[in-house]
Design a protein around this nucleic acid. Sequence first.
DNA 1: TCCTTTATATAACATTTGTTATATTATAAA
DNA 2: TTTATAATATAACAAATGTTATATAAAGGA
Lengths: 191, 191
Amino acid sequence: MPPAIKITRDSIITAATELVREKGTDGLTTRAVAKKLNCSTQPIFSNFPNMDSLKKSVLDKAYQLYVERTFSSMQSCRYPPYKASGMAYIEFAVDEPELFKMLFMRDRNGEERIDDTAESEMIVAMIRERTGLSDEQAHRLHTELWVLVHGLAVMYATGFEEYKADEASEMLSDVYLGILGRFQNKEGVVE
Amino acid sequence: MPPAIKITRDSIITAATELVREKGTDGLTTRAVAKKLNCSTQPIFSNFPNMDSLKKSVLDKAYQLYVERTFSSMQSCRYPPYKASGMAYIEFAVDEPELFKMLFMRDRNGEERIDDTAESEMIVAMIRERTGLSDEQAHRLHTELWVLVHGLAVMYATGFEEYKADEASEMLSDVYLGILGRFQNKEGVVE
DNA sequence: TCCTTTATATAACATTTGTTATATTATAAA
DNA sequence: TTTATAATATAACAAATGTTATATAAAGGA
């Protein structure tokens, strides 16, 4: 019989994720993970075929952390639900910039596009219901807000801009209400 | 007298910039530059104290390329001038994703913030003049549009979304006109 | 108690990278 | 023609990294 397992697959993923949090993707190396676990590099390779595989697991773990955070952030409901999801995304970028970069700023040029139409349709339906916009208008409102939220989040994650919660919140409102007003009433706009 | 100079400082920067364009920042290595110039790695180190210095020069060169592109893009004026600058930023992200990443998606957390108030004030003044908004409103309009443009550009640069010129253009208009309408006339918006 | 199994440790290897030491060689002044 | 100068080439070094070969040792079954 072999010795009992001391280093689990899960502990490796956790340590690796912690490393990315602290030092970014480049900080994720075999020896750094081993050091954090107080072990040699061997357990990594008996649990994962190679580092890319571990990196993939860290990506999944990071996304799980993001979902959990978003969920609990929505619970505390400082904002109406739709806005809350945007603010949660932004706050994730602020609090976990390295995980954010890994998850949402990675190069997807090789990857196949993920199909999020189902989720997207749900949100659009909700917007339609609340605002009386057409399907196309609701879709556009959602897309444009999402781009704004992403832009802000990226700025904060990269340290391009300093995060101020009320500023971010105001921007979302400005744009939301602006587009909404425009779609609900196309009059009253000069040029 | 020493032999004539074959490898100029400028040719090194050009080769290095080309490398970043093709393979991203990680593709910028001593040996890759040397190979592109058909020379050894030595000329690099007689022209630059180290690779970080060359990387800095590439950053400057990339910014220069961006400015030139933006300028000539503004000349062809497919859009009104203010919108044209946003579209030029976006198109730079589409056509030169690696240079865009290097310039506008790099980690600025260590860097000191650049002071762009002068330039920003000019733009804000222009907006104020054209729209009759207050200084604060014009400033907010500009900031929010800029965030949107940045968000779109980042999406395209990372391959998160496929670029379609008319879609991007419509988004800018929606948000611009939406915010503008909201600021010019606060009535007419439900909830 | 001994033995088999395998988790982990140790150590080594290949590769890549920045950087430097040394050798070579083209150039123009002497 | 000779020679000093410095631009470039060659080669080597050290460090970091992924990965693999080998050694060690723990744990329960025989």
